[in-house]
Design a binder for these strands. Structure first.
Lengths: 151, 151
DNA sequence: CGTTGCGTGTCAGTATTCTGACACGCACCA
DNA sequence: TGGTGCGTGTCAGAATACTGACACGCAACG
């Protein structure tokens, strides 16, 4: 029942392995983020804002792979606790550009270091060449899946 | 602010790319599974049972990357709808070995073909060599993260 | 000028998953 | 014989994310 399968063989499926890797990575991130009182989405939001200041709620949602509704609840909490700021009025359109406060930036520093250590650990057994290959391969997978999206 | 970063550069982070790939793959799977009235976890459970009959609730949960509590609610629904069977009494210990019914097997066939087509699309732009490399690289990442788990 | 399409923020309700906790069965070892 | 550790199934509650829907601002086009 495990050879000449019409379906998907879990032992050799790259899709399954991809999901497993992502799951283990997420768990490892949660582990180091929990002591800092931060969730993965929480961290993702702050990191996105540090690298691309002024992102709107919808853009943050896309970057963190959640819906804008979910990101909005998070942003409201972050704003309430003084980690980010949003203008009361939209400078253009309806999009509210969000920015980190000094407190948010400080909070991110420790988290970012922690996450970076996790990523280093993940890549520990790989050569530079393998890492570049992994990068290109993953990008190819993403592109292939996106292209055939509405086809 | 994007070079010599202490933190994580989203543009070059393998961790971020991994999450993105996983997210896109999940979305693609949901898209082809929805017409069949099946969620990703739903499908994962059936596929696991097809390839490893007699798995317990906890084992299925680990295989599908959810908690046993979540898997249990799913299993109860699947059992109620006649896709799987579980004995009333545990043959040994407390673990209840689960098996697909003919109906479950039939339902899985279409889903498995659909998911397989998604995986084929994902790998369309990759050579055989690249696929083997991807496999080994992902396994290395998983092992590295798991090893340093409780360290 | 109107209207069509697209992206956005937001409200409400639903679903899903998770965390915490308890009791049970088995294996191991003192 | 009794105790300890581990894995399991299950109940209850909370957190989280999602789907659906609405109104608004902007740009493109007739």
């Amino acid at each position: 029942m495990s050879q000449h399968e019409v379906g998907v063989d879990l032992e050799t499926s790259l899709g399954y392995l991809l999901k497993e890797a992502s799951s283990v990575l997420r768990a490892a991130m949660e582990e180091v983020l929990r002591p800092l009182g931060m969730s993965v989405t929480h961290y993702s939001c702050l990191e996105l804002l540090a690298q691309r200041p002024g992102l709107s709620n919808s853009e943050l949602a896309r970057g963190a792979f959640v819906t804008r509704q979910s990101m909005n609840v998070l942003l409201q909490a972050l704003e309430r606790d003084g980690y980010v700021t949003r203008p009361a009025e939209a400078p253009v359109g309806k999009a509210l550009p969000t920015r980190l406060t000094p407190r948010g930036r400080r909070s991110l520093e420790k988290a970012s270091a922690a996450v970076r250590s996790v990523e280093m650990r993940m890549l520990a057994g790989l050569t530079e060449t393998e890492q570049s290959r992994a990068f290109r391969i993953l990008q190819s997978m993403i592109r292939s899946l996106r292209d055939g999206d509405g086809a």
